[in-house]
Design a protein around this nucleic acid. Sequence first.
DNA 1: TCAGCTTATGCAACTAGTTTCATAGATAAG
DNA 2: CTTATCTATGAAACTAGTTGCATAAGCTGA
Lengths: 178, 178
Amino acid sequence: MSLRYAVLTLLDIEPGSGYDLKRRFERSVSHFWSASHQQMYRELHRLHAEGLLDCSEQPQAGKPDKKVYSLTDAGRAALADWVQQPAPAQKIREPFLIQLFAGHHLSRQQAHDTVSRQLEQHRALLQSYLEQSERVEQSDPALQERYWLAGETLALGIEAERTWIAWAEGILRKLEQD
Amino acid sequence: MSLRYAVLTLLDIEPGSGYDLKRRFERSVSHFWSASHQQMYRELHRLHAEGLLDCSEQPQAGKPDKKVYSLTDAGRAALADWVQQPAPAQKIREPFLIQLFAGHHLSRQQAHDTVSRQLEQHRALLQSYLEQSERVEQSDPALQERYWLAGETLALGIEAERTWIAWAEGILRKLEQD
DNA sequence: TCAGCTTATGCAACTAGTTTCATAGATAAG
DNA sequence: CTTATCTATGAAACTAGTTGCATAAGCTGA
């Protein structure tokens, strides 16, 4: 049930199409939510059917037409109501940590390889979060002020990645020293 | 597809029933995976049907009978094979961070309340991870040696919670100083 | 003795999320 | 001129996960 509120939140900040939304999920909330384009379109249809979203078709020059969605009053009310409810518990599912949990089936070299591979991915993630953070810092101060709590979620993403990277580097050191 | 390997990993370390498994998920891998008892039982049935698990019914004094599952050779082979594959990417889904992202719908007081509520939960989590860690330290050194990578996953859980708590405390400070 | 908790297992129906496929115009590289 | 990529939307079928219900034995406290 949280996907719908993630969608409402992004469209509340700025209206957009399913395609826009998919990219905004990748670029701005990937540190706490992910969804495929099919999920977006389905959720947009549902929210529109329930009267939480308005939809206007916009022909574009040189590109296919867009369906731009924006919140109705009912949509804004539903979102404002939900943010005040206790948040459903997060469900953590990290396949890589299962592999480490079963790490006694790996040779030292294999363990080193899998951890290294993950480490590269997390370094890339940290890099992309830092770039996002820079973009935020260069944006309109009034918007930064209004959405400062959103900015803090990104700060958490950055800190979490730094913690992860430091931990993984520690494991690699232990695997290297016999 | 990762649940099955989480189940295989725990049963590889020590055989047990669906009920045991559910509690072991809560007590020993909750920092990277969660599953309901229905998921356990269904997965155990499937794994048994596929020949990856053996099952023996054990009558118990003073308690209902148990079905104790353990890995077959095929089960151990499937697990050993899987741990060497690249891990599927983790999917992060944190409803609380969506709420903060939509935090402009909250008053200062409401924001303070929701963050405080989450902070309490994360402090309790850290506490339980630290207790787990102590239990591990007091266990047989040979087992600690064999499952040291599993121990490292717990260390990551602890570090991640500390990071989270420090971040949340920072938010609360910002919300308190006008 | 009755109510509630723990141990123990399971089905059925539902919601959420993934994968595969399909369509279609524009643009860019070779 | 063909292949590939990007923009843009969607259906259908599948797998994963959740919720609600059912059953049943034993144990604990009022």
